Simulated assay, not measured.
Amino acid sequence: MTVALPREKVRTRLSDAASGLLYLSPSIILFGVFLVYPLLRTIYLSFFRTDTQGTPLEFVGVGHYSTLFTSAAFWQSIQATVGFVLLTVPLTILIALGLALLANEKLKGIGIFRTAFSATMGMSVAASSVIWMFMYNPSIGIFNRFLEAVGASGVQWLLDPQYALLSVSLATVWMNIGFTFLILLGGLQNIDRTLYESADIAGTSYWTQLRAITIPMLSPTLFFVGIISLINAFQTFGQIDLLTKGGPTNATNVIVYAIYKDAFINYNVGSASAQAVLLFIAVLLLTWLQFKLVERKVHYQ
């Protein structure tokens, strides 16, 4: 049996809801204009053949999607994207975790190392890419100089399809370490110190404490950086544009750069929109799988 609410309570709830919407309206408007509308517009354009300005000309249905799934270039960009993600995400998290564990130690002057480890966060993608471009230079780059010093021949790091994706991935790992390091260091410093004091009294080793205390207590932070790193890897564009421009022979032509080339170089906005929709679905599914499969292993305090 339902009991009707007094009119005054109904009015109060409606008034509270209206007030809440009023306060949220700036965020809702910005969210709608810069996220929801572009997403809906992209989905809409993926079903049309467009002119060079992106104006719909002819409805083609799933024609763009059918063309993509039968395109060797599209599958090559998928392969490059998967390889790039697998190279950058685990390596970034592992290196940042190791640096965070070192920086979390109570040592004299450790603040200097914390600043150094997080320094890449303050550098732009353009500046970082230029630095790595010089380091990869076949004539004056430090990597080839080192190879020559040990008697090996130089490598065309950014021009050889065998090394190009690896080279861009290493540069990306370096660029992303600063942010990941700071997040993990913050997570380490929030772990209750009494747990380590109890473990020291029990005589447990450092590695046992790392396995039984640090990693479980840090799992929410690791889960967060895993999701953020995965999404960022799929969205990587700047360093690829500056270092390789998707080459050589499309070895580094990840899906985001393929979308850019189709939309702004080839002026095929419909195909670019279809690729963007597929990328959105892929990232959405991978994020959902992470929450579904990985979050159950996260130890929340």
Rank of each mutant, 00 (worst) to 15 (best):
A116K: 02
S129W: 05
V36Q: 06
G270D: 09
T244N: 10
Q189H: 03
M135F: 11
S167A: 13
S66H: 14
T180V: 13
F84R: 06
S169N: 05
F234C: 11
K292A: 13
K297E: 11
V150N: 11
F146A: 15
I140L: 11
F113R: 00
A100R: 09
V150G: 08
A17G: 08
F291S: 02
W288L: 14
D241Y: 13
S153Q: 12
L107M: 11
I213N: 11
R13V: 15
A263H: 06
N190Q: 15
P90K: 08
A263C: 07
A116W: 12
M175N: 14
L97P: 13
L230K: 02
S128M: 12
A116R: 03
L91C: 06
F34H: 04
I265P: 07
S229F: 04
L243R: 06
V130M: 14
G203C: 02
T92K: 06
I78K: 06
S129L: 01
N266T: 12
I281K: 03
V254Y: 10
F264T: 05
Q239R: 08
T50N: 05
A212C: 08
P161E: 02
D16Q: 15
I201R: 01
T208K: 13
L99I: 01
A251R: 04
V130H: 06
L87T: 03
I112K: 02
W174Y: 14
Y267D: 04
S229E: 13
R41K: 12
V85Y: 10
S273N: 08
R49H: 13
A171Q: 12
F146W: 15
S229M: 02
K245W: 09
I265S: 15
F84L: 01
L99T: 03
V10K: 13
L278Y: 05
R7M: 14
V62M: 13
S198Y: 10
S129M: 01
V82T: 15
E295W: 09
V294Y: 08
P38W: 01
S198W: 00
I240C: 04
R211L: 07
T287Y: 07
I215H: 05
Y260F: 12
A103P: 04
S273W: 02
D200T: 08
H299G: 00
K108I: 03
L158H: 06
L68T: 13
V150A: 10
A152G: 07
Y196H: 12
L5G: 01
